[in-house]
Simulated scan of single mutants.
Amino acid sequence: MRTNPLVSIVSAAVWLPPDRDSAESAVAEQRVEAKAARDLGHPCLPVAQDVSAPEMAVLAAREALRLGGVAAADTTLLLHAWMHYQGHDLWSPPHYIAHQLGAHNTVPVGIQQICNGGAAALELAAARLSMRSVLSTGTGPRHALVTTADRFTEPGFDRWRSDYGAAYGDAATAVLLRAPADPDDPLLLRALHTVAAPHLEAMHRGTDPFARLPRENSSVVDMRRTKRAYLSEHGAAPFKKVNEEMIQRVVRGALDDAGLAADDPRIRFVLLPRLGRRMLDGAWIPTLRDLVAAPAVRWGSDTGHLGTGDLPAGLHEVLRRPALGPGDIGLLLNAGAGFTWSCAVVEAPAAR
């Protein structure tokens, strides 16, 4: 998807809880295998003790609105993405977030696309803003807020052992978007491209029957178990091949949407998702090395995988560092169960 008119990223925020669970402690207490901890490469993971995921999202959203100088009442769309339990049954977290912010003029929408939820929410928000800007007879800008939040609590989720190649940190993110873009906005969203391989949904289903209730098949979310069942039948080679092909497709698609060549010198980096070190080194980085000239970077080993929040947290890092000079371009990658892959292309506006 190429945004037209251009959608800007006005601000981005990440809210992290103060407590940390160190890999050293997890190994010493036999909560994770020493080799697995080394392969993951995360020295610690943020842990939310007394705050729920939606409450964290409110905190991140308030910061994004403050940084952007935009009132909550001026947002027209709020998309909230999550992958784990939000604290209540049959309840809408995005409506709660809008209520707490005072965003009474917004339309709250929930997004559930597992780890790619934040990227999906950004793409949908940008598409909605672009469409409304084209169709609207008004002259004022439109604002959308994208939030993500997850709290991976025991006993239902084991942040170190529930998955292969990823350890899960508690966090919330928020990104404020605007269309049409303002000349003073720090980033332009040039494109956001997504591809999928739906047949891989079975990796997170395995051989389990459809349950009647949550946790009926397993008392703990155990993606290792379902993946073992899938791989025992299909082997690892087909998934590896599809993953490499989809990384290539999504990057090429994003570059094409943005009208860029893979060797464009303005592209300064390709930001990786916050997955384990071994997974990135073994699959993602070699694939990207033959695809784009810009280096692959990982900013976030100190948080672990943030569920739906990796790509929005990456936008926060791009703005915080700052990583781009005037006219420079960055690519941000993400992936999630299903499987789905997304690539965002952002640009720092040229100096006026």
Rank of each mutant, 00 (worst) to 15 (best):
Asp256Ala: 14
Asp290Ala: 10
Leu189Val: 05
Ser133Met: 01
Ala197Asn: 06
Thr308Gly: 15
His88Val: 12
Ala171Asp: 04
Pro214Thr: 05
Ser342Gln: 13
Ala283Cys: 05
Arg298Ala: 08
Lys241Pro: 01
His305Asp: 11
Asp256His: 10
His80Cys: 08
Trp341Ala: 01
Pro198Trp: 06
Ala26His: 00
Arg20Ile: 13
Ala81Pro: 01
Thr308Glu: 08
Gly253Met: 03
Asp39Phe: 08
Arg274Ile: 09
Val7Ser: 01
Leu324Glu: 02
Gly87Lys: 12
Val27Arg: 02
Val109His: 12
Pro186Asp: 04
Leu291Cys: 14
Ser219Thr: 08
Gly314Met: 06
Ala57Arg: 03
Val32Tyr: 07
Ala98Gly: 00
Arg142Gly: 01
Gly259Pro: 04
Trp341Ile: 01
Pro312Arg: 10
Pro312Lys: 11
Pro108Ser: 08
Ser162Ile: 02
Gly300Tyr: 06
Gly300Gln: 07
Ala26Val: 04
Leu213His: 07
Leu45Gly: 12
His199Phe: 14
Asp163Phe: 00
Thr308Cys: 15
Pro312Gln: 07
Val318Leu: 08
Asp182His: 14
Leu306Ile: 12
Ala103Lys: 00
Gly117Cys: 02
Glu63Trp: 00
Phe210His: 10
Val27Gln: 14
Ala34Leu: 04
Arg159Lys: 13
Pro94Phe: 04
Arg31Thr: 06
Pro43Val: 01
Ile114Met: 05
Ile329Met: 00
Lys35Phe: 08
Val51Asn: 06
Ala283Gln: 11
Ala144Val: 02
Ala174Ser: 04
Cys44Leu: 07
Arg38Thr: 14
Leu331Val: 05
Val297Pro: 09
Arg266Pro: 02
Thr106Ser: 13
Pro238Ala: 12
Ser8His: 00
Leu275His: 05
